[in-house]
Write a protein that binds this DNA or RNA. Structure first.
Lengths: 190, 190
DNA sequence: CTCCCTTGCTAGCATCGCTAGAATATATTG
DNA sequence: CAATATATTCTAGCGATGCTAGCAAGGGAG
């Protein structure tokens, strides 16, 4: 019976609509403006349908965050494979990461300062999350070898993350961004 | 007329009471549990008195955050001056920073993930904020000299910050913390 | 045609940050 | 001392929030 199929397809499409609309609203007006009421109004359904798809608002943000992780991973991959020289490759990855955080602040916020229910470093970690970290790791590998690769990657990533969050919250002057990136890259170029 | 003096004194004491109570509640139950209603109940005053002292809930959190910056600064100073060897001194500062973030998560949250209205790197930056940064800078100075001192300090601090925020949100396995700290210190020890 | 079960809706709960305006206490006058 | 003026604090309520119970409509099965 193809009716059932149509149903599940429509349901999937509506779930996608919820995620996309939530993201659009957040990018246009910030996450605070994404209320369940306004979101349900925008998708032209009532509030409770949101809860038939997601456990709550946090779960919707987490779904948007997952999209963000996927996009970040592909952009990091492009940056990494954009050069054969390990130095430039790592610099490209770092720049791509920074560019992502700066140009998609709402996505970055959902990915890191909220969305606590997305587990990391765990067997059931979503693939999108592991990919992004993997790209950074593969960019770091040619420079440091396999010794402490995982740990070094974590520190490099955390440094990038710290730089971007402090920059975005006004803790670091934006005009010195390039100099900070240069220092960071120099520190991690054995 | 000493009556006026008593008044302003009592008012100062009540303001202190608000801040201390807010902090206690946050440390006991998290910031979400610190509502204006519950806070006013705890200090045995009505809600509007909070608004005669602070512009809003954010301002109360900012006041708590300021306490946090002061405490962090003194702990960093103790760690820095605890050793004459530059290496151990910097390691001590880093460990003290990490210890602060881990043992006072609620304070750290108010200081960094919220409290946006506290300006940094600005002439009107509160002294408490500058002191903390200053301690890190003075710990970094013996190792790197005066070249790019400011920028290098910013990167070192951001790395610490990134490590702790990612750890606290479950993005980094806690059991590898010491190894990550070792890597970070090694990276910044010329 | 009737029953049923899925699906979506209306309406409402509890709570939030915040505030207008009444009420109470304190101080300053006649 | 009484009366007015001035702070100060409270009661009550506004407009939101996330979320949910319980009802109505719709299509599929017998």
């Amino acid at each position: 019976m193809p009716i059932q199929e149509r149903r599940v397809r429509e349901r999937r499409e509506r779930e996608r609509l919820i995620i996309d609309t939530a993201r659009q609203m957040a990018e246009a007006e910030g996450w605070d403006a994404v209320t369940t009421r306004r979101l349900s109004e925008r998708i032209e359904y009532s509030q409770p349908v949101l809860y038939s798809h997601f456990k709550g608002k946090d779960a919707i943000m987490a779904a948007v965050a997952l999209q963000g992780f996927a996009e970040l991973a592909t952009e990091l991959r492009e940056a990494r494979t954009g050069s054969t020289d390990p130095q430039t490759s790592l610099a490209g990855v770092a720049a791509a990461y920074a560019h992502f955080a700066e140009t998609r602040p709402v996505l970055y916020e959902a990915m890191f300062t909220s969305a606590v229910d997305l587990t990391f470093a765990s067997p059931d970690t979503p693939a999108e999350l592991q990919e992004g970290f993997g790209e950074i790791r593969e960019a770091v590998r040619p420079l440091v070898g396999d010794d402490d690769l995982e740990v070094r990657t974590e520190v490099f990533w955390a440094s990038l993350h710290g730089l971007m969050t402090l920059t975005r919250s006004g803790r670091l002057r934006r005009e010195d961004h390039d100099r900070r990136m240069a220092v960071l890259l120099h520190r991690f170029s054995d």
